[in-house]
Computed example of a mutant assay.
Amino acid sequence: MKKLFVLLLVCCSTLSLSIAKALPTDTLPVRGFCIAAPSAEKLAPFLKFIHEELAPRHINTLVLRVDFNYQFKSHPELRDAGALSEQQVKQLVQACREHHIRIIPQINLLGHQSWAGTTTNLLKVYPDFDETPWVKMPAKYEWPNPDGLYCKSYCPLHPGVHKVVFELVDEICDVFEADAFHAGMDEVFYIGEAKCPRCGGKDKAELFAGEVWTIRNHLAQKGRSLWIWGDRLIDGKTTGMGMWEASMNNTYRAVDLVPKDIMVCDWHYERPDKTPVYFAMKGLQVVTCPWRMPANARLQLKDMYDYRETATAEMKPRYQGMMQTIWSDAGHFLDEFYGRGNPGKDTVNTSANCFRALFAK
């Protein structure tokens, strides 16, 4: 028995040594974390999380989905109730500055202007911006539905939409002292609708690319860069990835029309698809974004290291790294992470476990 124990120790030591030798020495440019900006009452525990969890894991990029959770001065009519104040945002800025973490705020642009049966603030206050005003919000939301309603979009060709949107973007970038902005732009199902008096009959890929260019050019005036989700740039039919993680409404051809200096956040949550290669070969920078499956995240991380190790000198800088995504609010995520409350049925495939697997302390 003693000999067996010694043999096991030797084997484990040899395996550990071989794994250590196999670990990449390359440092990923982006070690990111994406989550909804905390509510005012959850700010203190989230600041603690930055200090005690993000910093020790060497997270260097924090994408905060702010949307209307800020006390906008340019458009107070669009604020959420209980939104973060300027002083509270500065606490986030200071915490991240202390640990050399780059903050990138997000406001969902183009799509995601509603959720389930609720219209979000932009179209609620400015209904004229709606791409599909004839689609009424249901009392009880179900998918699928006769209208094909997932989330509403604003009309990218409405003459008044960008004045309002860019005033929000400028203000949120200023208060977060940000040199980049995340515009969302994922899961855009309504675009170029035939009944829209401005967009009807126009090429959906050109409309999508045009909006990317419009946002990118506005940000560039102040030296800021643009990040977007990548699903609308992938052909859902040819790849078999379908309508969620890819496009089935012909926006995918925009991949050849968008500016090359944007950052594509390539999310795949059910399979570790190797689409970063596709984006890199199109000349775009890309980060891989897992959510709740630790096994997939580990494979995606290994792939990212492999891409960088085997790439040409031209391709390597386009493989920018990894970003963990969280799709609950900050308060619920912190409860999950610290084991508070009732765990779900699946205690393995959780966003907290995925985060720990992706970025160890």
Rank of each mutant, 00 (worst) to 15 (best):
M1Q: 12
M1F: 15
L9A: 15
V10M: 14
C12E: 15
S16F: 14
L17V: 12
S18R: 12
I19Q: 10
L23W: 13
V30T: 12
R31I: 00
G32F: 11
G32T: 07
F33T: 02
C34T: 10
A44G: 09
L47W: 08
F49N: 04
I50E: 00
H51E: 15
E52Q: 12
P56I: 04
V63R: 00
Y70A: 08
Q71Y: 02
K73P: 07
R79L: 08
D80A: 10
D80E: 14
G82W: 05
G82V: 05
G82K: 06
L84P: 04
S85A: 07
V89Q: 12
L92V: 02
H99P: 08
H100W: 10
I101L: 13
I101D: 05
N108W: 10
L109N: 05
L110N: 04
L110H: 05
H112C: 04
S114I: 04
A116F: 04
A116M: 13
T120V: 09
T120G: 00
K124W: 09
D130M: 01
P133I: 01
P133W: 02
P138S: 02
A139R: 15
Y150L: 11
P156L: 13
P156E: 13
G160E: 15
I172D: 13
C173F: 04
E177H: 08
D179K: 06
F181Y: 10
A183P: 06
M185I: 06
E187S: 00
E187H: 05
E187D: 12
E187W: 02
Y190E: 07
Y190Q: 12
I191L: 15
I191K: 02
G192I: 11
A194E: 15
R198N: 03
K204T: 15
T214D: 00
T214A: 07
T214K: 11
N217Q: 06
H218C: 03
A220H: 05
Q221A: 07
Q221R: 12
G223V: 00
R224M: 08
S225I: 03
I228M: 09
L233I: 13
L233Q: 14
G236S: 13
K237H: 14
G240R: 05
M243A: 10
W244M: 09
S247M: 05
N250V: 08
Y252F: 14
R253C: 10
K260S: 14
V264N: 05
Y269R: 08
E270L: 09
T275W: 08
T275M: 14
T275Y: 13
P276M: 06
P276Q: 03
A280G: 06
M281R: 13
Q285I: 01
P294W: 02
N296E: 13
A297G: 00
L299F: 03
Q300M: 15
L301P: 01
E309D: 07
A313N: 07
P317E: 07
M322H: 01
M323W: 00
T325E: 03
T325C: 10
D329N: 14
H332K: 13
Y338M: 04
G339L: 06
G341N: 10
K345V: 14
V348S: 05
N349A: 11
N349K: 09
N353W: 10
C354L: 03
C354N: 12
F355D: 03
